[in-house]
Amino acid sequence: MTQVVQTDTLVPGSEHQLGTIPVLSVSAGNETYGFPLPAIREILMPPPLTPVPRAPEHFLGVISVRGQVITLVDLPKLLRLEVHERQTIGRVLLVDSGEELIGVAVDRVVQVSQLRPEQIEYASAMSAELSEYIVGVARVPSESSTDPEEMVILIDPGALLGGLK
């Protein structure tokens, strides 16, 4: 099992020294997604969006953040997890993909949780066919009273750019 390597992929840097990985979970559409916290540069109120004609559907357009032009993507569409028409954007995450910043549109930010490696079910260990952007899934305690646990789909920021090019 190559767990060490995968932990690294999820969290660039040495944040997992204590054996836990800080993960920011956000909700978009009907799912909850998790990003390694160190890859999140900023969480923004959505700036004015400029759609780019002829771009693939998962690109919502471009936004200007302090003079920098950033591409905004729709996560559920990119992962082909659901077909929904986004009405409004709640927040924009600026995600460091390793080469350039990518804006990810989400409905809301849920929480930051410390994940232990054993909480993560890695995609490589699962039989189901998953998108290349997904590292795995984790079950984390939920805020909701009805369901004590929530499933978080863990995203690999490094793979995002590769897949989007």
């Binding site: 780019v52 002829r54 471009v62 032009v69 591409t71 080469e99 350039e100 090019k165």
Partner: peptide, 24 residues
Amino acid sequence: LGKTLSSVRGFAGAADLGDQRLAL
């Protein structure tokens, strides 16, 4: 427009028109 949108043809980039509004 960055690497993500480099495959979209017809645009040389985006320009800030002030107030965070972009024009392609």
